[in-house]
Amino acid sequence: MVEDMLDARKVVTDRLRRAGHDVVGEASGPADAVAHYRVLRPDVCAIDVAMEDLAGVAAMRRIMEVDPDARVIACTRAGEDVNVIAAIRSGARDVVATMLRLEHAMEEIDHELHGTGPPSRRRALPA
Rank of each mutant, 00 (worst) to 15 (best):
M1R: 01
E3D: 09
D4R: 11
M5S: 02
L6S: 03
L6H: 04
D7C: 02
A8E: 04
R9Y: 06
R9M: 08
K10I: 12
K10C: 02
V11Y: 06
V11Q: 02
V11P: 13
V12H: 05
V12C: 08
V12A: 11
V12L: 14
D14L: 01
D14N: 01
R17L: 03
R17I: 04
A19T: 06
G20T: 03
G20N: 06
H21T: 00
H21W: 13
D22Y: 01
G25Q: 00
G25S: 02
E26I: 07
E26R: 07
E26V: 02
E26Y: 02
E26F: 02
A27N: 00
S28G: 12
S28D: 06
G29V: 05
A31G: 12
A31T: 11
A31K: 14
A31N: 08
D32A: 15
V34T: 01
A35T: 09
H36T: 12
Y37S: 02
Y37P: 03
Y37V: 00
Y37L: 08
R38K: 15
R38H: 03
V39G: 00
L40P: 01
D43N: 08
V44E: 00
C45W: 01
A46H: 00
I47T: 10
I47H: 05
D48N: 11
V49T: 03
A50T: 10
A50E: 14
E52P: 15
E52D: 11
D53V: 12
G56S: 12
G56Q: 08
A58F: 09
A58Y: 05
A58E: 10
A59C: 11
A59I: 07
M60E: 05
R61I: 06
R62I: 08
I63V: 15
I63S: 04
I63R: 02
P68W: 14
P68D: 13
A70M: 10
R71V: 02
R71H: 12
R71M: 05
V72Y: 07
A74Q: 06
A74I: 06
C75E: 10
T76A: 07
T76F: 09
R77N: 07
G79E: 05
D81R: 06
D81N: 15
V82I: 07
V82D: 04
V82F: 11
N83W: 06
I85R: 15
A86L: 13
A87Y: 08
A87Q: 04
R89P: 03
S90K: 11
A92S: 13
R93G: 03
R93E: 12
D94P: 00
V95N: 14
A97M: 13
A97Q: 01
A97L: 15
T98P: 03
T98E: 15
T98K: 15
T98L: 15
T98Q: 14
M99E: 09
E103Y: 09
E103V: 12
M106A: 04
E107P: 00
E107D: 15
E108Y: 15
E108D: 04
E108S: 05
I109D: 00
H111C: 07
E112Y: 11
L113N: 02
L113Q: 03
H114L: 09
H114P: 03
H114E: 11
G115V: 03
T116Q: 13
G117R: 11
G117K: 08
P118I: 07
S120F: 14
S120K: 13
R121S: 12
R121W: 10
R122C: 12
R123A: 15
R123I: 10
R123F: 14
A124G: 06
L125C: 00
P126S: 12
P126W: 06
